[in-house]
Amino acid sequence: MITFENVAYSYGGGELLSDVSLKLAPGSFHFLTGPSGAGKSTFLKLAYAELRPTSGRVTLFDNDVTKLSRDDIARTRRRIGIVHQDCKFLDHMTLAANMALPFTVSDRESDHKDMEDLLSWVGLQHLADALPPQLSGGERQRAALARAVIVDPDIILADEPTGNVDWEMSLRILTLLVELNKMGKTILVATHDLNLIRQAKAQIQARVLRIAKHRVQLAGADL
């Protein structure tokens, strides 16, 4: 679904990531870990074509990202659910309208029933009319996850989805991700929370990628 071939990326200084080669197979569950500033978010941005590799090749659904037009990228993103690190919403629209946004921007109608199901799945049905700034950190994280999955994407990329929530909420979000993976979605979660990874490994077969010394390596079972 997503492949990296000898990918390197630099923001202008030295190379932040170099010589990254890996493949995310359909239905797989990957964690991406590493210290803060290692380049986890950068890696995800390469994976959803917000950034283009400085060298090497990133392929999304068998298309080289450097050959995609802006409209192609927009269409590709409708097949990828993205949970951004800081859960951005349109603050002037209700939570329900925000969740329906992926449909709105592609001029499709969102299904009323699906919407309700999804809201109760993430436990936010009572907040459908709330504005995003009124939500707590955990509620924002769950709303972002709900928005990412509403169009039934093939891949879900989540950047620190448990970044600023307590342990109990982290587990709830993890459970949601595990459920999505069981439904066949390919999942990549960037996190520096090793406890979360351990918890996940107990529930599901997850692989761990670690960023160290600008490389992305598959971590062993030593976690």
């Binding site: 409209d71 927009a74 993103r77 993205i82 951005k88 349109l90 946004l101 992926p102 592609s106 928005r147």
Partner: peptide
């Protein structure tokens, strides 16, 4: 940025 992220075309 949000709109682009959820797949809006220019």
């Amino acid at each position: 940025r949000v709109l682009r992220l959820v797949g809006a075309k220019d």
